[in-house]
């Protein structure tokens, strides 16, 4: 029975790790709370000082048309003071209130001070979502607004869980401003714990 169970668990693990899906490449960690700003037709707003991660092939914001049933038309621009315009593309809207704009070619270098702008190219107003905060720095019509927009970055293509491991390894280190040892230490410790436990249980069962 344990062998069958082990095989089932391994197959389940393999299935989970092989599944390809969109995975975050970066985020400004702004909670998606509520629509925070309306954008009239022809208006553009910009959010500076954004984290833009290397390898990103798509940027996502959250937006909804103020008149239900219409499809917003937007132009998303990503730029950086030194790198210039990195991407300028129409935002692809989906029914879940998201706009995705492609970045082609993908971002080469991580920047912590990129600027993301959205222009409303449709006929009706739209509302962008994020957080109301006094630390916000969104600029609209020359005015600074006390809001932050949720901005997410994704790789160009969906990735499998296994492929994602390569991205995870350095992140575990960066999270504690340390080196890549962190991931390997944690992985070895966990695998050792599990290996010792299974070996001990099997040995006791055979006694």
């Amino acid at each position: 029975m344990p062998i069958v169970l082990a095989l089932v668990l391994l197959v389940a693990l393999g299935t989970v790790l092989a599944r390809s899906e969109p995975r975050l490449n970066g985020t400004n960690s702004v909670p998606l709370r509520t629509p925070v700003v309306g954008l009239r037709s022809g208006e553009q707003l910009c959010q500076p000082q954004q984290l833009m991660t290397a390898g990103s092939g798509r940027v996502r914001l959250f937006l909804a048309p103020e008149q239900p049933g219409t499809t917003p038309k937007t132009l998303v621009t990503v730029r950086h003071e030194r790198d210039g315009v990195i991407a300028r593309a129409p935002g692809r809207y989906d029914d879940e209130g998201r706009i995705d704009a492609p970045i082609d070619p993908p971002v080469r270098r991580t920047r912590v001070d990129a600027e993301v702008c959205v222009r409303n190219q449709g006929d009706g107003p739209v509302a962008l979502s994020g957080l109301l905060t006094p630390y916000g720095n969104v600029m609209l019509n020359g005015k600074k607004l006390e809001i932050s927009l949720t901005v997410l970055w994704f790789p160009k293509d969906d990735t499998s869980g296994l492929a994602q491991t390569a991205a995870v390894i350095p992140r575990v280190g960066h999270a504690r401003i340390g080196g890549g040892w962190a991931f390997w230490f944690a992985a070895l410790a966990a695998l050792a714990a599990m290996g010792i436990a299974l070996t001990a249980a099997i040995r006791e069962a055979r006694r």
Partner: peptide
């Protein structure tokens, strides 16, 4: 920023880690 925020993540990149350091 992370607690209770599905889109919140810790420091992921060298520039962020360097700034905190």
């Amino acid at each position: 920023d992370i607690v209770g925020n599905f889109y919140g993540r810790p420091l992921w990149t060298p520039p962020e880690a360097q700034a905190l350091r």
